[in-house]
């Protein structure tokens, strides 16, 4: 059983994710934007982060992940870089949007498509926690 932090600006999405993860026996906390998310990560150091891609900008989630564990990480947050990140995205399967070669390296551990299949989400979360 793990502590999981959801960072997503859509409260319905947060609720759905929370219900799904809680039914799997996890303890869930949430943040509505990257800044609040960072505060909670520092304060509580969750076992896993579920991160939304599109928040206030189309790539806010990517930028957040890069800040935590990009090629040039913030040394103050080095101890947080090991927390697994599962990204919730609607981008890579259904739209022709593609990121350039520089963005291809995305420092996240796995992706789940939005809208998600609850079973898939749980399976991926548990797999990441076992690592």
């Amino acid at each position: 059983m793990a502590n999981i932090l959801i960072i997503d600006d859509d409260p319905d999405m947060v609720l759905a994710t929370r219900l799904c993860l809680e039914s799997g026996g996890h303890t869930v906390d949430s943040a509505g934007d990257p800044a609040e998310g960072l505060k909670k990560i520092k304060a509580k150091r969750p076992d896993l982060i579920v991160l939304d891609v599109m928040m206030d900008s189309a790539t806010a989630g990517f930028q957040f992940a890069l800040r935590l564990r990009g090629p040039d990480p913030d040394p103050a947050m080095a101890h947080l870089a090991k927390i697994p990140i599962l990204m919730l995205t609607a981008i890579h399967s259904t739209t022709p949007l593609r990121f350039g070669p520089d963005d291809q390296y995305l420092p996240v551990d796995d992706f789940v498509d939005k809208p998600f299949e609850p079973e898939t989400l749980l399976k991926k979360v548990n797999a990441l926690l076992k690592k």
Binding site: D10, M13, A16, S23, M54, K114
Partner: peptide
């Protein structure tokens, strides 16, 4: 349009899985 529909779909799926 995608965001609200996606949110609703996710909620319904969680509901259907009897997770709540």
């Amino acid at each position: 349009l995608r965001s609200p529909v996606g949110g609703a779909q996710s909620l319904l799926r969680v509901l259907l899985q009897q997770m709540s």
